[in-house]
Simulated scan of single mutants.
Amino acid sequence: MVNPASTDVHKRLFLYSHPRTRSNLFMRLLENHPQMVTKQYPFMFAFQAGPEGQWPEEKKAMRIQASHMSNEEADKKTYQAGLDEMEQLLAKADEEGKICTIKEHTVHLFDSKFINANISTPRREVPRPDIVDRKLDVVNPADVDVQLPVPNPTWLPDRIIASMSPIIIIRHPVSTYTSYIRAASVFGGTGLDSEFPLMATYRWQKIIYDLYREYYNKTDPEGKKDWPIVIDGDKLVEDTKGQMQRFCELTGIDESQIQYSWNPSSEAIDGVYRAFVGTIKESTGVIKKSDASKDMNIEEQMKKWTAEWDEDVAQRLKETVEASMEDYEYLYKFSI
Rank of each mutant, 00 (worst) to 15 (best):
V2E: 07
V2H: 12
T7P: 10
D8R: 15
H10C: 12
K11R: 15
F14A: 00
F14C: 02
L15C: 06
H18N: 03
R20L: 05
S23V: 02
L29C: 13
V37S: 05
V37A: 11
F45D: 01
A46Y: 02
A46G: 14
E52Y: 04
P56E: 04
K60Y: 13
K60S: 12
I64G: 05
I64L: 12
A66N: 08
S67C: 13
Y79I: 11
D84K: 01
E87K: 12
E87P: 14
L89T: 06
A91S: 12
G97Q: 01
I102A: 10
H105L: 02
F110Y: 13
N116V: 00
S120T: 10
R123Q: 03
P127F: 03
R128N: 05
D130R: 15
I131N: 03
D133T: 09
P141A: 07
V144F: 00
D145P: 09
L148S: 05
V150A: 09
T154H: 01
T154C: 06
T154P: 03
P157G: 06
D158K: 08
R159C: 05
I161Y: 01
A162G: 01
S163C: 10
M164F: 07
S165F: 13
S165K: 15
I169N: 06
I170E: 05
I170N: 09
H172D: 05
P173E: 01
P173W: 05
V174S: 07
S175P: 07
Y180R: 13
A183V: 15
V186H: 04
G188H: 09
G191Q: 13
L192I: 01
F196A: 11
M199W: 07
Y202C: 05
Q205F: 12
I207W: 03
L211A: 03
Y212C: 07
Y215M: 10
T219Q: 03
G223M: 06
G223E: 11
K224T: 14
K225E: 06
P228T: 11
V230H: 11
D232P: 10
V237M: 09
D239F: 13
F247W: 09
F247R: 01
C248T: 02
D254R: 09
Y260V: 09
N263M: 08
P264H: 15
V272N: 04
F276W: 04
I280K: 04
I280E: 14
S283P: 11
T284Q: 14
T284P: 00
I287K: 10
I287L: 12
K288A: 15
S293W: 13
D295C: 07
M296R: 05
M296V: 10
M296Q: 14
N297Y: 14
I298S: 06
E300K: 14
M302Y: 11
A307Q: 12
E311K: 06
R316W: 11
L317P: 01
T320N: 08
V321H: 03
V321G: 00
E322M: 02
S324I: 03
M325T: 02
E326A: 10
Y328M: 00
Y328N: 08
L331V: 05
L331W: 08
Y332Q: 04
F334H: 15
